[in-house]
Design a binder for these strands. Structure first.
Lengths: 328, 328
DNA sequence: CTGAAAGCGCTTACAG
DNA sequence: CTGAAAGCGCTTACAG
């Protein structure tokens, strides 16, 4: 439209200050003038410029949410909860796909700094790299940030992380107690979060005196199926496989069935994240639930406190839980 | 930080105008002063306020993307492509979850109007309601908007829609040619897009002289499984079912198998959207591909032209394609 | 209860 | 090649 409060003021025969006051619901305005202004505001479909408002108030009422891949169900659920939570408080969320390279991720921090977001959320351990840390230190040293599933030693960044070491550790132990002895692990990407999962696997295997069987696959259901087929060719004695992500387990379990093996009789399968895929998969997938919901809720709460009180800092850790279905 | 170009100017011993010019890479600045300013800019980690800049330039360089449910894989893929495309052009995307009610959706249009987004994208036919149309007319009469899978008769809104009538119509015909005669349709939500799918079903059934078998289910894999079980109890002769969304088909096919029926021998299954679930499902799901990718690409291109030229208008229609897998 | 003025952080004619 | 000034659309002390 291009209407400003001056246009409204002129029409109403008052000053811009008065218009501003009725828009912001200040008290102490004569009822008659308030109503007159409100009427004109409504009739002309006036909408305040948040940019101008933000400039004087020194707040954008926007929060930035950085996600490494927005199409990842697990990440987008996190972003979703944040968005919903902060929209209720009057914040708009700028959700950005930060890409793969460290430089790209750091670049997005700068972009959000330019937008003067009131707070920043990092979703996913992929952000745990020096470039991002540095970008925050340089460009957002005083902006509250909360890191979902990662940690930075900066006073303005809080975190909520899943104890993935324990998640995988317990999964291995469970399989062991079920009598499995040839327990393999298949990993897709090399991220800090995945490294923690592997640590849990290694720790449990060592404690139990079992031989490690660790493998890497391409990041797709197909890639995982291929890697699994290779593994079962080489080590047909394998009687259990844990996957770093559910979707890998889903792709693989179909291939295992096609190879003529039974699940879970011949081979048990466990995924990670307890995503929608786990329930929809056939057979239904047992999975390590990293408790995303709790993680996201914790992030929202931390952020809210941090926006109020800039020196607020908190580190939360949630313990994953093994959800048993038909593949174990 | 709180650094402004005046701080930089003072340090560099130049005026703010000059600092602004080097930031914006204007030509005609003495090399030595440009370098001096650039050095200070870098050393002090200066970042321009996009809000202030936008205020004078009358452009926010933000685009608004409204999605009814961001967790919906189908919708988020669309939002993702937009975001990626426009980020390359220097736009930030405000992706918002617009909720279910018409009022809520219209409210989000107002929110984005206040943010003065340079363009708006509506993802999903759920936005096709009078409240949203009115909000656009009132609050964004001159902002380019593109409606993915919906149409408004407003001169500033373009659209890219899937011809869902034809998609379902062809699916029914295909089943008929395979010898199926008891073809049912199960629908979740009542959206304009779903109504078009049903129209296609009705049209084909009528043309083929078959009896309509239309059913509604709750919007979940479980709900669909329940509805399917009821249907098969009542009409055990059913030999094919089309679902309005893939995930419904996935939930249902597991239940059908559990009931002791064979897929596709006893009963053929077709989903809609050709989502990741279709490929990961076991058995792999045949699905009506609504060609989201093409739709999103079209939206991006339309929007780009519309941002350049405010009077640009375009309506694109893409024809769905049936992807055959193991359930037919 | 209301208005005039200054200022938020920029950009861009206009001079020189 | 560079600077002073005005202005983008608001809000908020400060007066009255």
């Amino acid at each position: 439209m291009g209407l400003t409060i001056y246009d409204i003021a002129k029409q109403a025969g008052v000053s811009a200050s008065t218009v501003s006051r009725v828009i912001n619901r200040h008290s102490g305005i004569k009822k008659s003038t308030r109503e007159k202004v409100e009427k004109i505001l409504a009739e002309s479909n006036f909408s305040v410029s948040e940019a101008a408002r933000g400039l004087v108030n020194q707040t954008s009422r926007m929060i930035g949410i950085l996600v490494s891949d927005i199409r990842n169900q697990h990440h987008i659920e996190g972003a979703y909860m944040m968005e919903q939570h902060f929209m209720k408080k009057g914040y708009c969320s700028i959700i950005l796909n930060a890409g793969d390279s460290d430089e790209s991720k750091a670049g997005y921090v700068r972009i959000l700094a330019s937008r003067r977001v009131d707070a920043l959320v990092l979703v996913g351990s992929a952000f745990q790299c020096e470039a991002v840390r540095q970008a925050i230190e340089d460009y957002m040293p005083d902006t509250p940030v909360v890191f979902q599933n990662g940690v930075f030693s900066l006073k303005n960044v809080s975190s909520a992380v899943a104890d993935e070491v324990s998640g995988t550790y317990e999964a291995v132990k469970y399989l062991y107690n079920q009598g499995r002895r040839q327990i393999a692990y298949i990993n897709n990407n090399d991220t800090p979060s995945n490294r923690k999962k592997i640590d849990g696997y290694d720790k449990a295997m060592e404690e139990l005196g079992l031989v490690r069987s660790f493998h890497v696959c391409e990041d797709s259901a197909e890639g995982s199926a291929d890697a699994t087929a290779r593994l079962l060719d080489q080590k047909p004695e394998t009687d259990a496989i844990i996957y770093s992500v559910d979707i890998l387990a889903v792709g693989a379990s179909r291939r295992i069935l096609d190879m003529g093996k039974r699940i879970p009789q011949d081979i048990a399968i466990i995924g990670t994240d307890n995503s929608p895929f786990a329930v929809l998969s056939n057979p239904r997938l047992s999975s390590i639930d990293t408790r995303l919901q709790e993680l996201s809720t914790a992030c929202s709460q931390i952020l809210e406190k941090a926006i109020e009180n800039p020196s607020y800092h908190e580190e939360v850790e949630v313990t994953p839980v093994l959800v048993l279905r038909e593949t174990t």
